[in-house]
Design a protein around this nucleic acid. Structure first.
Lengths: 240, 240
DNA sequence: CGGGGTTTTGACAGTTTTCAACAGAGGTGG
DNA sequence: CCACCTCTGTTGAAAACTGTCAAAACCCCG
């Protein structure tokens, strides 16, 4: 059921008519399970399907200047390669972070669906606009913040986006990222990320053991991260 | 004539029907001149018009962690606050870099135009997708590259985007950025940007005096910058 | 139980920032 | 036309943050 998380995601950021929701529910799709570090799409590919994340995390990544840079994470309900509808050639890899599950919907089906409904077309456009806001926030994060708030901000974003699709319980969620992934996303070295996370732990802000991440003292943590969820443009701000 | 640069910009990245071009040409608009450092829109504003850059540069910026971070520059033909159509509250300032000229088109007019033509709706969506690609490239740039290639990459991007709208002649163009602007965009200190630009000059890669920037040895310069224009998704790659 | 990936540690090197001061360019007013 | 003022660009030295290298501890999975 790819529609479930996708609809939840779209509803979290804007209205979608009942008719459009039906169209989404009736999409044809195939499901694919990805192992840890397995690629969904590669740089240079010309996908003929759109990917919808059903479970787990995907990263958008590319080798830049001899290191792996991650420019976004995609969670349940996200459509990481929506751009391929208009921009045929992938400029990044989409890679599974931990095991994950994705749905694939043919471009032709998506196009047909969007031709039927300008409401959906607008919803997808809005979704693209929000993705843009997220990328810009990453620019701000990488450009202006030191390691500690930078890492904290990343964690806050993931937590809030997971809340949109109901995957956080008592400030605790499943997080498949390794410290290396955090380093690649934050533009920091693994060693420095390790020390930064230790500092967050030392301050009693997070408890991150294995695949489980718990936010202790959410308020203080978001202050350290200088996090303001407004840029995610969620309709119901979960933590207010 | 806001349509001129806007149409050039849209045509540079995708097909637009003659009918849609007519619709763009018939847009109602008002023109506004901005002085250096004057704001077009501020954080928290709820614009009722869309901005189109006619001449000069705008920067998208925000105070992050006690410094000014620029997350994008917008050049002639760009529509920096297109997101406000779907995301009403501005999350960044739009600020003039040097004097500039913008056109303003009422949201209601834009909406009417898009309702008439799914072709235009798709063109604007594609434009948003490309903006997203540009933001991601900035993430890669800030996250992975050292000062020298980072600054060089920014310059390459601006040059190429200016070429799309015909504002580069003999590898030379008008560049209103100060070293402080470069610093704010690249997440570096002014002093370090100054030294970096001197190094680029010393290597004979650029000649940047006053408001005029000339790329000497374009090929080598783009190699230093690790620049590949593919992410801008121009239809005619100018430098091939 | 073994083995590979992940986390952790320490010492050191490097890039980048900060501070502070000065030179130069451009615009304004007298 | 020059003085003056501000913004921009430039320099040097010291400090800070972050990176690199290398090794060890840990942990999960088969």
């Amino acid at each position: 059921m790819p529609h479930h998380k996708l609809i939840a995601r779209l509803l979290a950021v804007g209205p979608v008519s009942e008719r459009d929701r039906d169209a989404l529910r009736n999409m044809r799709y195939s499901v694919r399970n990805l192992a840890d570090a397995e690629y969904a799409v590669r740089v240079g590919d010309r996908p003929s399907s759109c990917t919808i994340v059903l479970a787990g995390f995907l990263s958008r990544q590319r080798v830049v200047s001899d290191r792996m840079q991650i420019s976004s994470f995609y969670l349940a309900g996200d459509m990481p390669d929506l751009p391929s509808l208009h921009l045929p050639v992938m400029d990044h890899d989409l890679c599974s972070v931990g095991p994950s599950t994705i749905a694939l919907v043919k471009h032709s089906d998506v196009r047909a669906m969007l031709q039927e409904s300008t409401g959906l077309l607008n919803a997808f456009w809005r979704e693209t606009l929000i993705q843009g806001a997220v990328y810009r926030e990453w620019v701000d994060n990488l450009g202006a913040r030191q390691a500690l708030p930078r890492v904290a901000h990343l964690i806050c974003e993931i937590a809030t986006r997971l809340e949109f699709v109901g995957l956080v319980e008592q400030n605790s969620f499943n997080c498949p990222l390794t410290q290396e992934d955090v380093a690649n996303a934050c533009g920091l070295s693994i060693v420095h990320v390790n020390r930064t996370i230790q500092e967050l732990r030392r301050r009693g802000l997070i408890d991150w053991r294995g695949r489980t991440l718990e936010l202790l003292q959410r308020q203080e943590f978001e202050e350290v991260a200088e996090f303001d969820a407004a840029y995610l443009h969620g309709l119901d701000r979960p933590h207010e």
